[in-house]
Simulated scan of single mutants.
Amino acid sequence: MDSLILLIIIIVGILIFLTLLFSFIPVGLWITAYFSGVKIGLFTLIGMRLRKVIPSRIVRPMIKSTKAGINIDIDKLEAHYLAGGNVNTVVDALIAAQRANIELPFERATAIDLAGRNVLEAVQVSVNPKVIETPKVAAVAKDGIEVMTKARVTVRANIERLVGGAGEETIIARVGEGIVTTVGSSIDHKAVLENPDVISKNILDKGLDAGTAFEILSIDIADVDVGRNIGATLQTDQAEADKRIAQAKAEERRAMAVAKEQEMKAEVQSQRAKVVEAEAKVPLALADALKEGNLGAMDYYNMKNILADTSMRESISNVNKDDDNKN
């Protein structure tokens, strides 16, 4: 009985050992690689495990490249994986480039991948050109009419400039700048509507794909719409601004005139006050003259008669003026 238990324990231990061994050493992957024509040793796979490299991420792309007739050193694949690259995408890109007769060395493919670009997509775009549609670009012709233009840009990836070349955003920005320049130099918006291909020709002549990761094949104007009358709006705004300036200046002159009038009224009031003050002193001066003998009683009465006669004449004159105004 004890020997049977011991035998069971030994068998279980062996099974556990073999399970751990085969989980650490990918024997199944080694067998698949061997029958696929990829010569790789078990110790190489063990070394990948020790270097924390997933063997399937290296072996399966290598099987794929070998079947496609592309010989790649396994150390290079492992180095690219350790650098943070996508080995499977790089191998797919190399196969696609080979089928399309595009020269793409392994080093360039890995450099493109590590630069953050999808190297497989780049090869596909190089074979099958891509269409980039710009948003509506607003431009104003010389006659002040706004023209809304949308363009479709057909581009092909330039493998040699993928590393360090500008992306789609730069292409869209440059095409938009070319549209604005072309429309802005047109005499009127009708010329743009009649010949929209002029925009395409002018943009293509500028060589807008310089320094980018693409080669522009064609630029087609997809849509042209007439927008607002910017010139009339600007003139209206300018006239409104001029009117407000004129109103402000007129208000300033009116305020100055009112201030001047108030100043003159204050001056008149001051003069009248002085006259009233002087007239108030006349009786006192007459009294002093009578007291000192400088003025006789007859002289005083003669003066009173003159004042009364003057007052009567002024009253008659005012009555005559009233009658004239009524007539």
Rank of each mutant, 00 (worst) to 15 (best):
A259V: 05
D143E: 04
R228W: 04
I11G: 01
I40Y: 05
G28C: 06
A239M: 15
P196H: 04
K291Y: 14
I5W: 00
D92S: 08
D323H: 10
D197G: 11
D188K: 01
S56A: 12
V226M: 11
E160T: 11
A210H: 06
N158R: 10
A259S: 11
I63M: 13
L50P: 01
K130E: 09
A278I: 10
N118M: 02
V198C: 08
D197T: 13
K249E: 15
G165W: 05
P129Q: 09
S36V: 05
I199L: 06
K136I: 12
E121Y: 03
D197W: 12
I40S: 03
L104R: 02
G84A: 07
D323F: 11
I179D: 02
A213F: 05
V12E: 02
T149E: 05
P129K: 07
S23T: 09
L104G: 00
V319L: 13
I230E: 08
G13T: 10
M303V: 07
N86S: 14
A285M: 10
I8E: 00
S218Q: 11
K243V: 13
I54W: 07
R156L: 04
R51M: 09
S126E: 14
K76M: 15
L204K: 07
K206G: 01
V125A: 12
A97F: 04
A289K: 01
E194N: 14
I16A: 09
R272W: 09
I10F: 04
K321W: 15
V153R: 02
S185Y: 07
V27D: 03
I216Q: 02
F43W: 13
I95E: 02
N327D: 13
G165S: 06
T310D: 14
E261N: 14
V119W: 00
Y301T: 08
N318L: 12
I132H: 02
S315W: 14
F24I: 13
L50R: 05
F22G: 06
V192H: 00
A111R: 08
D205F: 07
A213H: 04
I40N: 04
K201R: 13
V123N: 00
T19E: 05
Y301E: 13
L94G: 00
F214G: 05
A289V: 01
I46K: 10
G28R: 07
L286W: 01
V226T: 13
A239C: 07
T170Y: 06
I70M: 04
A138K: 15
M264A: 12
L15K: 07
G231Y: 06
P283N: 12
I11T: 06
A287S: 09
L290F: 02
F22R: 07
F22Q: 11
R272K: 15
E168R: 02
L120K: 08
I159C: 01
I203Q: 02
H189Q: 03
I14T: 06
L18K: 03
L6R: 00
